[in-house]
Design a protein around this nucleic acid. Structure first.
Lengths: 185, 185
DNA sequence: GTCTATAAGATGATAGAC
DNA sequence: GTCTATCATCTTATAGAC
């Protein structure tokens, strides 16, 4: 990055630590240590730890969809596009050491009254549901399920598989989800 | 409870707070305040906060399966038994203010090296998968999917729906999961 | 804008009296 | 077995020098 490289560095380091160790298990001190900056510098860029969390989630969300677009743009067949979304998540989980969904993790950690955080998580998942829906309407040939039900199915299989990936530290359930969806297309 | 009422009281209060606020957001001080005991009393019953967490998870898991058994014992039809497991989780989520799965929440909060906690979570989910499988083999009539695939489907739909319940604070997705499974039976 | 130093409070856990 | 008092440490955040 050209502009705001310090800010980007902080978000990147904090995001990694939040994801690997948990948000509440990661102190500001560790963030500044690993980012190689002073505490007051962090608070010059962010008003609070919560602000930093918001920046991380926004950045993560944008990168996630950009990566999905990049992968799916290489595929033409609608069915394969939809199934590739499973591959995307499978590969992401392998790279991320099976930590599960970053948004889900965070929503399990913040207190219920942190509405801004919950809205960010909801926004990400709603965007994902729309993303899947757009793929399903082109991929649903068998009509075993309606487009709406198939959209829900794909979303729920994916989220369930991701939850299982975080618990069992493998992607077998995501792969099973992909296989099940393939059978229903 | 007759025996160990102090211990049970601690587990019950701590469990409620861990679930509602998060494990790391709940301090020992709050637990003893709300349980109405002194700090040294807590440490007389539990060696550490982690020990208390383990007691809570074990207690929660046993109660969960006992409740499922109780509900399903009132139903005869195998298909309805399987679908009733969705109702069980739907009702549980309503009672729990849509906090999601207690085990998932915890596994998102503890550090990766807390292997004992992760094993407890894995054990609960494996037991759930076996529980579902036993119901599926009696309920799968259509054979659109094999018994194994239908077991995975039911499990993933359920976990995905529960994840959505925690994010969106409603049970619509669990109900959708139930409807999808019904279609596939 | 970045730094050091420090504030003010919460954390998990323990010692020792009763 | 329960209590009060205390410990050492960590937490987020700020003040003020450079």
């Amino acid at each position: 990055m050209v502009t705001n490289s310090v800010r980007d560095k902080i978000v990147s380091v904090a995001g990694r630590l939040f994801y690997e160790q948990g948000y509440n298990n990661t102190g500001i001190n560790q963030v500044i240590d690993e980012a190689g900056i002073a505490k007051a510098s962090l608070y010059n860029h962010f008003n609070s730890k919560t602000d930093l969390l918001i920046a991380y989630l926004n950045s993560f969300g944008e990168n996630w969809f950009a990566g999905a677009d990049r992968l799916l743009s290489t595929i033409n067949d609608p069915k394969q596009k939809l199934l590739a979304l499973f591959d995307y998540r499978i590969n992401n989980q392998r790279k991320a050491n099976y930590g599960g969904c970053a948004f889900i993790k965070i929503s399990a950690e913040v207190e219920p009254d942190e509405t801004e955080i919950f809205e960010l998580v909801q926004g990400f998942k709603q965007r994902l549901q729309k993303y899947i829906h757009a793929l399903v309407v082109k991929a649903n040939e068998s009509k075993i399920l309606t487009d709406e039900m198939l959209t829900d199915t794909a979303y729920l299989l994916m989220e369930g598989g991701l939850s299982a990936a975080a618990i069992f530290k493998h992607t077998k359930d995501l792969e099973k989800g992909k296989k099940i969806l393939k059978t229903l297309l």
